[in-house]
């Protein structure tokens, strides 16, 4: 890495809002130093490194909210695509990690809200820019939201839960689930539908979803 690049990355660090209080926790920023240098010299390379480093973990985080491997992977892939196309890396004032986690939570939350909203207006939910000023309480609410979802799923009757997880997480077809569970296809559909209804009822009372002014209606 040449000298000019290091200078550049230092400037980035200096402009960071976190610089002053970060001194004690030098490690926080330092583990991304290599990434910053990569972005400074070749953003493409930087994106690729970032992807390698965080893709798996971010997918794992997203799935806690969306409960579908496919959706989780899509959300993360879109996040990284946007990171490149919109040159998000140019304007980052936090660590890449903080940005990525915030963004993935934001997208997962939007997906969830959208799914529970059922409106005929697709414009209602914009791909909102990641809010750089999350209040501490809001930061915590995201974690509490996925805990709540997990709890609701754990509370489902065993058969209901199994059908739901096979459908959502594994993305299996109703006929496959029917075969695996040795029940009829219609019964599987009923179980999945019941799971969603119960999940919806649980989350309906969640003021976090309500807070954003989103009307939660039925999925089915």
């Amino acid at each position: 890495m040449s000298a000019s690049y290091s200078t550049h990355s230092q400037e980035k660090t200096q402009s960071s809002v976190f610089r002053t209080s970060v001194c004690k926790e030098a490690l926080v920023m330092d583990d991304e130093l290599v990434l910053r240098q990569a972005f400074a010299s070749d953003p493409r390379k930087g994106c690729e490194l970032l992807f390698r480093r965080y893709y798996t973990n971010l997918c794992n985080h997203a799935i806690r909210f969306v409960y579908s491997k496919e959706v989780a992977e899509d959300i993360v892939a879109e996040l990284f695509a946007n990171f490149w196309y919109s040159r998000v890396f140019d304007d980052i004032s936090t660590s890449y990690r903080a940005y990525l986690y915030r963004a993935v939570r934001n997208r997962a939350y939007n997906y969830l809200a959208w799914q529970f909203k059922r409106t005929d207006s697709m414009d209602a939910i914009e791909d909102m820019p990641v809010d750089p000023t999350l209040k501490p309480d809001e930061v915590l609410q995201y974690s509490e939201l996925h805990q709540k979802i997990e709890h609701a799923i754990q509370q489902l009757p065993a058969q209901c839960q199994r059908a739901f997880l096979l459908k959502r997480i594994e993305g299996k077809k109703y006929t496959e689930i029917a075969e695996e569970m040795q029940i009829g296809t219609k019964a599987v559909e009923a179980l999945v539908s019941r799971a969603l209804t119960r999940l919806r009822a649980e989350l309906k009372n969640d003021w976090f979803l309500g807070l954003s002014g989103l009307v939660i209606l039925s999925i089915l």
Binding site: F18, E25, V28, D31, T94, A98, Y101, P136, V139
Partner: peptide, 8 residues
């Protein structure tokens, strides 16, 4: 800065 730590 602690929010950084939080995500770490």
């Amino acid at each position: 800065a602690n929010e950084e730590l939080y995500y770490q």
